[in-house]
Design a protein around this nucleic acid. Structure first.
Lengths: 235, 235
DNA sequence: GTGTCAAGCATTATCGATAATGGAGCATCG
DNA sequence: CGATGCTCCATTATCGATAATGCTTGACAC
């Protein structure tokens, strides 16, 4: 029923592998924005048939990394800082809600998974594998959203395609990893302390860390984004 | 780029038709909870091949209406009141955020679409086609979320599978339609008035209307759901 | 010069068939 | 008797091929 099972146990389908492959191609710039991607062409390159490629495309379209017009073609979406930043207020309200529930319920399994993710983060140096770090970070956040024990919440959060956005963001930025790990550990501590209001606030404010990460052009700073105002309402 | 294009213009794929067909079968009780549904069997019944059925299954799994175990089988998920009620706080925070943005931006197109949806609602009597009403209601809410002008927000909201849940909920309940239409019209009025705080609050509180709709067993009332507390934080 | 139409083309959408997988039940071993 | 391994079966996952569609281009009429 959980549509995001433990990746260490499942994740065998060709579709998922193809999705991850394309994600990396895009994140690391080998597939430029606007480039057309054709199902059959990708299938040929990767030695599969069209079917799993098609499923991968669907996932990437849902995540906003590709765009497609019916019977015309699919291409790499022009994903800019604005797109990444747009997710911040949405994550803020969703994860704020998740923090509140998580602190109330403190489900052992997801919290244990969050701890494991942090261990994984700690094992990566500041100049270590940023890609692996992105994966651990995503796993941490997903664990906390899972800890809320609300299926719909997880569903909405999953739809944001955080893995993919995190990979895209981390592929180009240089946020200090060790500090990020400390931030995450603190977050988990607050949740485990069990104060829902504090947890909600901490989770919401944590999103602030991701904002500068997605802002590479100073021009973006002045845009009239109502996020800050929203944030105080989000938890 | 909008992954929810105007249904009056597109919506031709077999996959979507199959998805809607199965949704109705489930909502109207012809497919009971726990019933196994097989890709090839559905394909045979509907006179298509496995491929579009497969895509429909994916959508329904994402929406929580089906559940599937790899290489084992897919069946109708046991969707109870709790599942429906679970979506309420998530919708509350998302639509609260949407209301805030919508009031700030007041994008003409989505708001016009919201007005059209209300006209469609008004055209349906209290004892009219509840299914058509469910569609109009969903279109209204989607229009408002679209009016927020935040792609990620729409993405997360879409993932909740509101169409489907609304159909499921309305298939069995008897909420007075005319009153519901008035509620929606008032919501739109507040947004068009342009006060972000008021709009956010109105949207969030509107979810309260859906709560009793999903509560058929009094036993649910006492469950320790933190939603009420959350609501005041959600906008 | 501009609008309209049709044919060709690129691409996705769908199809029917085959391969691969996990589970259930039976036989066998300890 | 209980545990273990094997075989068969149901079902999904994948495949290769074909059908259908929307766009583009160029001819042609006005």
């Amino acid at each position: 029923m959980d549509d995001t099972p433990n990746p260490r146990l499942v994740r065998v389908s060709l579709a998922d592998q193809i999705r991850d492959h394309l994600t990396l191609e895009i994140a690391q710039g080998r597939l430029a924005r606007g480039t057309p991607v054709r199902e059959l062409e990708v299938a040929r390159q990767l030695g599969t048939s069209q079917t799993p490629v098609r499923e991968a495309f669907r996932q990437l379209i849902a995540a906003g990394l590709l765009e497609s017009r019916i019977h015309v073609g699919t291409r790499v979406r022009d994903l800019d800082e604005h797109d990444l930043e747009e997710t911040v207020p949405v994550r803020a309200v969703l994860e704020g809600l998740a923090g509140r529930y998580a602190a109330q319920r403190r489900l052992p399994e997801p919290l244990a998974e969050a701890h494991r993710a942090i261990e994984e983060m700690r094992a990566i140096d500041d100049d270590g594998d940023r890609l692996a770090y992105a994966g651990a970070s995503t796993r941490f956040h997903r664990a906390l959203v899972t800890a809320a024990g609300n299926r719909s919440l997880l569903q909405a959060w999953n739809a944001l395609g955080i893995e993919i956005l995190t990979i895209v963001a981390m592929a180009s930025d240089t946020y200090p990893l060790s500090r990020s790990t400390d931030d995450h550990a603190e977050l988990l501590r607050v949740i485990e302390a069990g104060d829902p209001d504090a947890a909600a606030q901490a989770m919401t404010e944590h999103q602030e860390h991701y904002r500068p990460l997605t802002r590479t052009s100073p021009a973006d700073a002045g845009r009239g984004d109502p996020t800050d105002k929203e944030r105080k309402h989000a938890g």
